[in-house]
Amino acid sequence: MAGPLRQLSEHGVSIWLDHLSRERLTGGGLETALRDREVVGVTTNPSIFHQAIAGGGSAYDTDLHDLALRGVTAEEAVRALTTADVRSAADLLRPVYQRTDGHDGRISLEVDPRFAHDTDATLAEARHLWWTVDRPNLLIKIPATPAGLPAISAAIAEGISVNVTLIFSIDRYRAVADAYLTGLERALADGRDLSTLESVASFFVSRMDTEVDRRLEEVGTPQALDLLGRAGLANARLAYQAHEEVVRSQRWQALQAAGANVQRMLWTSTSTKNPAYPDTLYVSGLVVPGTINTLPPQTLDAVADHGEIQPDTVRGTYEQSAGVLSALSELGIDYDEVVALLEEQGVGAFEKAWSSLLDSVEASLTRLRGTRGTR
């Protein structure tokens, strides 16, 4: 009998790993995941790189020593380290990329999160990262902030494949889909081959429950407590309903006829933050063909060990999901306020992780410059 990870793949969900480090690359961990765990892609973010580099032991010592000798800045060093890891991962993923005609076998790299509210800087960073990594199976991660949306369209128009990150609301997902279609239309007008472009829309799941549950517990009524742990899945499922509306539109049909690839939904933030909830909740509850679920290592292990996978746990839930959001509204929980806060917190968390990484690398470079000539 096929294991849960194989079942998830057979039900049309691509499994990506939400983690990357030098140790995982050099120690064979990524190769093992690709071979034995149904993993067909990798995502990264500033927090993952902070954990990998600042807490990575000696894995980066040689590179940091050489960078210190060259007198580079902390920002240059971080970009050198992260793009090197992403390039190596892209090469390991290349066979999957070729086998799946470019739909999977992808690795994501995020623009500097400090540019989340600056369209021009985001686009400039996207161009630089795309050029630096120089791998066809790269996805540049651009946040779905108001400033990020026009950068998404411009990047797609220029031939840069994009992973749109930090999507928390259904309306913002619709704006992301519009930005992708706009970019495709511009690319088509410029004579680009649309089949070479890929995009995913990364919809955050668990953080919705974290914030909504806090507010439900403050309300404290039986009706409120009955809704605990239900907002995250409801929100994501209704976003998928919006996705279905997009792919039924005449606008998308025209682009598809011209060779465009659909912008797939990617479920992220899929580790449960509340230990009272099943640790596979945001995997088993979001099974639908043609989507991606990017899993942190511990969630990947949990699904492999005891995941219960049923076919299509999304379509057919829309009325119930809308009822959950309606019930939250009746209790005075403002959906728009929640998702705006989550976006603000998400951008802030990535900015903090990036700044901490820069500080850590700067300290390492300073220390190593002081040992110049000792090796």
Rank of each mutant, 00 (worst) to 15 (best):
N293K: 05
E344S: 15
L194K: 07
V133F: 09
E198W: 14
W130Q: 10
L8W: 07
T44E: 08
Q241W: 12
R127W: 09
V72Y: 12
S326Q: 14
L227N: 00
I142C: 00
H103D: 13
S249F: 12
Y60M: 02
A59D: 12
L227I: 04
V205D: 01
V205K: 02
R135P: 01
H243S: 07
L92M: 13
S206K: 03
L365E: 12
L184N: 08
L197N: 02
A340V: 08
D226R: 15
G105V: 05
G323L: 08
P222D: 13
W252K: 07
Q250D: 15
I48G: 10
L357A: 02
G159Y: 09
A175P: 00
A276W: 00
Q223V: 14
D359T: 14
W354V: 04
A234T: 11
E185S: 14
A157V: 08
A116N: 05
E343M: 12
R192K: 14
L197Y: 01
T272P: 00
L295W: 01
G71N: 07
V111D: 01
T270R: 02
R375P: 00
L238A: 11
L368Y: 00
G191V: 05
A349C: 02
E343F: 01
Y277T: 04
G3D: 15
S14Y: 07
R237M: 11
V176P: 06
E337C: 00
A201W: 12
A254N: 11
L109G: 00
L93Y: 03
I160L: 05
D226W: 10
